[in-house]
């Protein structure tokens, strides 16, 4: 039962984290969920969510507050680096901002970066790997040359240029997209390699040979025979890729290239927190746990899918 176990555990973790991230603007906000307005109950939280300007008196007449009643960017100089307490469940950071709110909102950024980066890597890696694996021969050889060239290219330079210097039109893109772009452009090779292997294997399988022998066209073969078999490896790759991208964002933050402050991200919070690891341990512990859970979830999910759907590992 280890197989289904990982799958379920991974899926549960990820869904949980994604859910929290999606709900972040409602989960952690200084606007109350319900307040008493001039004409009965209003919801300032929902107001600010949809873009309506909530009444500024909402705070006094609050009836029901959000579970984490702080905005992630709210600077409070009185509460700098307070340990976890009833008021701030996970403590506050170097500007008095609530850590729980920042972890929750940080999840949105970190997970979005992870998903987009994995998507970018797949968008490039999937067709490339598929083409190389399915067609073989010269296509494969040509692609190999391209891969070699990309491998020789120092990815760090690309990251530094695109992320730190943002020349020209790149400057207009939000940080998240730029990071996803860099991670996708540098990360598609393992994806392509893996898928190439899988497509090679599938292409050589009996099912496909039989289909081809009975005269089926390429497209038909791909759609009816290859894609279903390839689905599993693609999902596996996607799962691992998301985890890797989330970790890479943290590493980029450490080098000063991640999503820039004041937007909270897990990696950014870890970097800020490393200076105080002895005295203000909560600053790095909680985003670290969040990061860890996210990557763990991705890996468990990937492994689970692989175990479940990949015929080779069934014993």
């Amino acid at each position: 039962m280890a197989r289904t176990g990982s799958l379920l555990a991974g899926a549960a973790l990820l869904l949980g984290l994604a859910g929290v991230a999606l709900a972040a603007p409602l989960l952690a906000t200084d606007q109350p969920w319900l307040a008493r307005g001039p004409q009965g109950l209003v919801s300032p939280a929902i107001d600010s969510l949809v873009g309506r300007r909530p009444s500024s008196r909402a705070a006094e007449t609050a009836v029901l507050r959000a579970p984490i009643p702080y905005a992630p960017g709210r600077v409070e100089l009185e509460d700098i680096r307070k340990p976890p307490s009833k008021a701030h469940w996970l403590g506050t950071d170097g500007l008095g901002r609530d850590v729980a709110a920042r972890v929750v909102h940080g999840g949105r950024v970190s997970l979005t970066v992870g998903l987009l980066a994995a998507l970018a890597a797949l968008c490039v890696g999937l067709p490339v790997g598929a083409a190389a694996g399915y067609r073989g021969g010269w296509t494969d050889a040509a692609i190999s040359r391209v891969v070699e060239a990309v491998l020789c290219f120092p990815a760090l330079l690309l990251a530094l240029v695109v992320l730190a210097m943002a020349p020209g039109w790149l400057a207009g893109l939000p940080d998240v997209l730029r990071i996803a772009l860099v991670l996708g452009v540098t990360g598609w090779i393992p994806v392509a390699r893996y898928l190439r292997g899988e497509f090679l294997r599938i292409r050589g399988s009996d099912m496909v040979s039989a289909a081809r022998a009975s005269g089926a066209g390429h497209v038909r073969v791909i759609v009816r025979h290859i894609l279903p078999s390839a689905l599993a490896p693609v999902l596996v790759t996607a799962a691992f890729a998301v985890g890797a991208a989330v970790l890479m964002e943290a590493a980029l933050s450490f080098l000063g290239l991640g999503v820039r402050p004041p937007t909270p991200t897990w990696g950014g919070m870890l970097t800020e927190g490393k200076t105080h690891v002895m005295s203000a341990w909560w600053l790095a512990l909680f985003p670290g746990i969040a990061l860890f859970l996210a990557v763990l979830g991705c890996n468990l999910l990937g492994e689970g899918i692989r175990d479940r759907l990949d015929p080779r590992t069934r014993s």
Partner: peptide, 27 residues
Amino acid sequence: WPGSRSDRWTGAATYALYAVPVFWAGL
């Protein structure tokens, strides 16, 4: 011994390790 306790534990341990960012581990 796939599926055994040692398999699952090593699996869990290695995955846990993999999820830790490098600079964090260094620290």
